[in-house]
């Protein structure tokens, strides 16, 4: 199980990466942490001709607070670095929770935050949290740079809005509205596995009722999924006494999860309902 031949290039600047993506006539793929890409290469399920390694590009290696109070995580930032960063730990608990669910530390020590977004695995945690937090993905290409809302970025399993010559340079997580609390819950058969189903939630409490309720599911379809009917019915309710059976029915109407070797669609639907309830109650407890 060895990768097919490719040429390896260690990029030194963003311009260098963009140049490779635009000018090289061969099939070019960006390599960051490699934790999703290299298994696929080893199994020869992908065969790019050139790999451009972006991990040594200084501009992509930083975690910083932008002037408007957003968290900017550069494309070469490893998940472990984000997880251990005091700023992230203090103000972006949903990002911390998402990362802690990713694989194992041995994977997170190489894997990058933006790599997980660009890879767009339908059962991945970070895309869901990006949607939950209204994150924006910064993209650059020979045509200049642009910004994509997370909700618009994910198009399907392993499919994003990214053009072949575009590079993700960073992700911006806006600060959470005051009073909101988060939870990321997922179901796996073993710690560290891809989520069978997961949900990232954000709630706020006013007068002992949910004044905000947002839930983004993963592992239930090709992209992170929000279910407006469910969010609408929960806002204004007390989650400890809410009609969760009715919520489950709404979910069943809205979601059509896949069946695979790990779980049937029926189980995924049941898990979505169970996890939603547990996740919202966990976040509610923090309010």
């Amino acid at each position: 199980m060895k990768p097919a031949p490719f040429d390896y290039v260690m990029a030194t600047s963003v311009a260098d990466v963009v140049n490779h993506l635009a000018e090289d006539e061969r099939e070019v793929k960006v390599l960051a942490g490699g934790q999703s890409l290299v298994p696929v290469l080893n199994m020869r399920l992908a065969r790019p001709q050139v790999l451009v390694d972006i991990t040594r590009v200084p501009d992509l290696q930083t975690i910083e607070l932008t002037p408007d109070g957003e968290l900017r995580i550069g494309a070469a930032v490893r998940q472990t670095d984000a997880l251990e960063h005091p700023l992230v730990r203090r103000d972006w608990p949903a990002v911390v929770s998402a990362i802690r669910h990713i694989g194992h530390p041995q994977i997170r020590n190489s894997g990058t935050v933006c790599g997980s977004l660009a890879h767009a695995d339908s059962s991945a945690e970070l895309p869901a949290v990006a949607v939950l937090l209204d994150a924006r993905i910064q993209v650059v290409s020979p045509r200049g740079s642009r910004e994509v809302r997370a909700a618009d970025f994910f198009l399907g399993t392993f499919t994003t809005d990214l053009a072949p010559d575009e590079l993700v340079t960073a992700v911006h997580f806006p600060p959470s509205p005051a009073g909101t609390r988060h939870d990321v819950s997922e179901f796996t058969q073993r710690r560290g596995d891809f989520a069978t189903v997961g949900v990232a939630t954000r709630v706020a409490r006013r007068a002992d009722l949910l004044s905000e309720c947002r839930a983004v599911f993963f592992g239930v379809g090709g992209t992170p999924v929000r279910v407006p009917t469910v969010e609408d019915v929960l806002v204004g309710s007390d989650p400890t006494t809410a009609d969760w059976a009715a919520v489950a029915t709404l979910l069943a109407e809205a979601l059509s999860p896949p069946t695979d070797v790990h779980a049937s669609a029926e189980l995924r639907l049941e898990l979505a309902a169970t996890l939603l309830q547990r996740s919202i109650l966990s976040a509610w407890e923090l309010c």
Partner: peptide
């Protein structure tokens, strides 16, 4: 495939899969 961990080494002090590292 990065799943079993038998190939784990320390890279700059961090445990990583050497089978998923070029």
């Amino acid at each position: 495939q990065g799943a079993c961990g038998a190939c784990t080494v320390l890279l700059d002090g961090r445990a990583v899969r050497s089978c998923l590292t070029l």
